[in-house]
Computed example of a mutant assay.
Amino acid sequence: MVEAYILIQTEVGRAEVVAKQVAELPGVLSSEYVTGPYDVVARVGSDTKDELTASVVPSVQQVAGITRTLTCPIADAD
């Protein structure tokens, strides 16, 4: 399995709602709202890198209230 963290910035006051919506998407393993420079951190996974970049990440990016994302593939997911 290929996994990554997606660091998410949201519109002001939307972090909790966005985290809950992201958590329900296919391929999302966990989603938490946090404090700091990012508002939500999601861990995502799929069988292949292509599926991750073509399907899972774009579905997260389409959630209403998200202003910016940064995808960080996990270097050693063993």
Rank of each mutant, 00 (worst) to 15 (best):
T35M: 14
C72R: 03
V63K: 02
G65D: 12
V18N: 06
G36V: 01
A15F: 01
V40A: 03
Y5L: 15
A4Y: 04
K49V: 10
V12Q: 10
V28T: 07
G45Y: 05
Q61L: 09
S59G: 05
L29G: 07
R14F: 13
E16I: 08
D78N: 09
T10R: 02
R68L: 11
I74D: 08
V40Q: 03
V44G: 09
R68N: 15
A19P: 05
A42G: 06
R43G: 02
D39V: 06
S59I: 05
G36P: 12
A64L: 10
A64D: 14
D76Q: 11
I8Q: 01
G36C: 01
A15C: 03
Y33S: 06
V60N: 00
E24M: 15
V2W: 00
T53K: 06
V18F: 05
R43I: 12
I74C: 10
T53N: 08
M1D: 05
S30A: 11
V12E: 14
M1P: 12
T48V: 07
E32Y: 13
V34H: 07
D76G: 06
I66Q: 01
E3L: 03
T48H: 11
A75H: 08
T67A: 01
C72W: 01
K49E: 10
V2T: 12
E11G: 09
I6T: 13
S46N: 12
S30G: 07
I74E: 03
E32S: 14
A4V: 04
E16R: 15
P73Y: 08
V17K: 14
Y33N: 13
M1S: 13
L52E: 00
V2C: 08
A42Q: 01
V56W: 04
P58G: 07
V2F: 07
A4D: 06
G45L: 05
V41W: 05
A4L: 06
D78S: 08
V18Y: 09
T67E: 08
Q62L: 14
Q9I: 06
D47G: 13
Q9W: 06
G36E: 01
V44Y: 12
D78Q: 08
E24C: 01
C72G: 01
A77L: 07
R43L: 15
R14G: 01
A42K: 02
D78F: 05
S46P: 03
V2G: 00
V28P: 07
Q9C: 05
I6E: 00
V40L: 04
I8S: 04
V34K: 08
V17G: 11
Y5P: 06
I6N: 00
A19N: 00
D50V: 11
T71P: 08
T10D: 05
L52M: 15
E24T: 04
V40M: 02
Q61W: 09
A19G: 00
A15G: 00
G45W: 00
K49P: 02
T69S: 09
A75K: 06
A19I: 01
Q61A: 13
